[in-house]
Design a protein around this nucleic acid. Structure first.
Length: 260
DNA sequence: AAGAATGTTATGTA
DNA sequence: CTACATAACATTCT
């Protein structure tokens, strides 16, 4: 579930919930790291998203860092909010409803310095107005690493995961194994714009569909929502999709649409 | 019911 | 020092 768009969408929904509804925190499992007691019952003031990271600011001054990792998800409830089911690490409840955070890789109270250190490690996030595309382009073009690895490197660009890596490179006709150095400035710019568009689309839809062309995603059969990601053959041309391990994650590409 | 899956980080090795 | 591989950790679904 978690790529950058998921995080921004969650932040947006949660901000919307916040409006006119005081959300109070609790940690049903009592596994809420060191600051549990301090945050329990605190009122949520704001939710910030950066790349795949979320920061919750509470009225009592506490800041909670959340990272969904591979398995983390949010469950939204309308009031009355049911008993917690599963490993609920953080629960936020208001008058109209609430939400549970399950299985996150990180859910901990942090201070301003820790937040700053976390953000300092991240590259520009295309979903943020303050993002600098030039930083991405120059970093890519200086690197001898495969562009497929660079796209997943959160220090190079924040928010891209395995699906967007595969689909953005496909859309730009760039083979994931090409080195950053080998990517032209035009290609790098196009890659940024493509990722930005795909992430924004993901926020709007709440899912990743790179083949929709404006059609409702629900009318697109499962397995036809990406061109190469998770597929045996390229959706566009039918050529068998190449799969290979890139820095421990499976990369996908069409040898015909994305020649070396 | 084993295994895969939209991640990150720490650590070991070349 | 850097790059890369590996393991560990989180949970749900098929």
């Amino acid at each position: 579930m978690p790529e950058g768009h998921t995080i921004h969408r969650a932040a947006r929904e949660q901000r919307r919930l916040l409006r006119g509804d005081a959300m109070r925190a609790s940690s049903p499992q009592g596994r809420f790291a060191a600051g549990a007691a301090l945050v329990d019952g605190a009122t949520l003031r704001d939710v910030e998203a950066y790349g795949k990271h979320l920061f919750y600011r509470f009225g009592d001054g506490h800041l909670v860092h959340v990272h969904l990792g591979l398995f983390g998800r949010f469950r939204l409830h309308r009031a009355p909010v049911p008993e917690p089911r599963g490993a609920v690490r953080l629960r936020l409840v208001g008058e109209r409803g609430g939400l549970d955070l399950l299985g996150p890789a990180a859910c901990a109270v942090v201070d301003a310095d820790e937040r700053a250190a976390l953000l300092a490690r991240l590259g520009p996030d295309p979903l943020r107005a303050d993002a600098d595309p030039g930083a991405f382009t120059s970093r890519v073009r200086r690197s001898p690493a495969p562009v497929g690895a660079l796209l997943m490197d959160q220090a190079v660009i924040a928010g891209v995961g395995n699906v967007f890596r595969a689909e953005a490179l496909y859309a730009c006709r760039i083979h994931p194994g090409r080195t950053g150095r080998d990517v032209s400035a035009e290609e790098a710019d196009a890659l940024w714009a493509t990722v930005a568009g795909m992430l924004a689309d993901g926020v709007r839809r709440g899912r990743i569909v790179t083949t929709a062309n404006g059609r409702p995603w629900s009318r697109i059969p499962r397995g036809e929502r990406t061109y190469v990601y998770g597929r045996e053959t390229c959706l566009a041309c039918g050529t068998p999709v190449q799969r290979f391990d890139l820095r421990g994650r499976m990369a996908y590409s069409c040898p015909r649409c994305q020649p070396r």
